[in-house]
C-alpha cells in the first residue's frame, strides 16, 4: 500500500524562505500521518507567475535550500518543484523526486506552454529527457503540468511499465461553466482518467491553490486508478494536506484484464510514426 500525501498548497510568489518553511511543515504533518511520499505542486517553492522574478528565484540543485528538502527525505519520499538553474545558466521548471536523503530523479518540464495566458518559454528552457525511475512502489514517473497534455510523455513512461505517475501542476481555473467545479478542472480530470486507463497506471495529480495576478489555481487534486476510476479527490480549491492510499496490487489484475501494455508494439509503432512523420513533412 502506497500512502500518498498530496500537499495542495498556495505558495507565496517569489518567497523561497516562506515556501520552504511551509514545505517542511507539511512534510512533518505527512510523516505523522504515515505517508510514504508527499507531493507538492509545480513551482511550489517559488510560485508560478514569476516572469522576470525567474532569475532571482532560480536555484541550482545543490543550493542549500534544495539540499535541505532532499535531506528531509530520509524517511519519507518527496516530490517538489522550483526554478532550476543549470551550470550553463539555463533555467528550467524542475521537479525532484527525493528518497532516502538523495535526489533520486530530476525532471525538467518538457513542454513549458507559451500561448494564451501562458508565457513560460519566454523565461525558461525546455527540458529534454524523460525516463522513469525505481521507487519502493516500482517504476515511477514524474510529469509537470503541460507535459501531461502530450500523450507521448505517458506513452514513453509506459514502455518501462511505469505504475505510478505524479503529475504536478499549477493549473489556472476558467470558472465560467456553471458547475461547482471549473471547466479546467473538468478537462484535466477527463484527460488524466483517460491516460490512467490507456496506460493502466496510477496517476496522482497535485494542483496548487490561491491567486496570482488574477489567476485562480483550482486545486481539486486527485488520484486516478489504472482502470481510469477516481480513487480519491479533493473537493475544494483550498490549501490543505490530503492522503490517498494506493493499492499497487490493483495493477496486477487491471493489467491482466486490460493488457494494453502487453499488446502494445512500440517498435512497430515507432516505425509507423517515422513513416507518418516523413509523410507529414512531404505533405508540407
Amino acid at each position: 500500500m502506497l500512502r500518498v500525501g498530496m500537499a495542495q498548497v498556495t505558495p507565496r510568489l517569489g518567497d523561497l524562505e516562506q515556501n520552504l518553511k511551509k514545505h517542511l511543515e507539511m512534510i512533518h504533518a505527512a510523516r505523522k500521518q504515515g505517508a510514504s511520499v508527499v507531493v507538492f505542486p509545480e513551482l511550489g517553492l517559488t510560485g508560478y507567475a514569476l516572469r522576470d522574478l525567474t532569475l532571482s528565484v532560480a536555484m541550482r540543485v545543490d543550493d542549500p535550500r534544495v539540499m535541505r528538502l532532499i535531506e528531509e527525505s530520509v524517511n519519507i519520499d518527496l516530490v517538489f518543484s522550483f526554478i532550476e538553474e543549470s551550470d550553463d545558466h539555463r533555467f528550467y521548471i524542475t521537479s525532484i523526486y527525493a528518497s532516502k536523503g538523495q535526489a533520486l530523479h530530476r525532471h525538467r518540464k518538457l513542454y513549458p506552454p507559451t500561448y494564451g495566458l501562458f508565457e513560460e518559454q519566454r523565461h525558461v528552457a525546455r527540458g529534454e529527457d524523460l525516463s522513469s525511475f525505481q521507487t519502493s512502489s516500482g517504476a515511477t514517473g514524474l510529469l509537470i503540468c503541460e507535459d501531461a497534455w502530450h500523450p507521448s510523455t505517458l506513452y514513453t513512461l509506459s514502455l518501462t511499465g511505469t505504475g505510478v505517475i505524479y503529475v504536478i501542476a499549477a493549473g489556472p481555473g476558467r470558472a465560467l461553466n456553471g458547475a461547482s467545479d471549473s471547466s479546467s478542472q473538468q478537462f484535466w480530470q477527463r484527460m488524466i482518467r483517460t491516460h490512467a486507463q490507456l496506460f493502466t497506471t496510477f496517476i496522482v495529480f497535485v494542483n496548487r491553490t490561491g491567486f496570482e495576478d488574477g489567476l485562480h489555481f483550482f486545486g481539486h487534486s486527485f488520484v486516478a486508478g489504472p482502470d481510469g476510476e477516481i480513487l480519491f479527490e479533493v473537493k475544494d480549491a483550498k490549501e490543505g494536506l490530503h492522503f490517498a492510499d494506493l493499492d499497487e496490487t490493483q495493477l496486477r489484475s487491471v493489467r491482466y484484464r486490460s493488457p494494453f501494455l502487453r499488446d502494445e508494439d512500440p517498435e512497430r509503432a515507432l516505425q509507423r510514426m517515422k513513416q507518418a512523420l516523413r509523410a507529414g513533412r512531404a505533405n508540407g
Partner: peptide, 16 residues
C-alpha cells in the same frame, strides 16, 4: 455560466 462564480470572486477579493 456564473452559477458557481461567487465563491471564487469572494476568495479573489480576500486574497488580492
Amino acid at each position: 455560466s456564473v452559477r458557481a462564480t461567487a465563491p471564487i470572486l469572494v476568495d479573489f477579493l480576500r486574497d488580492e
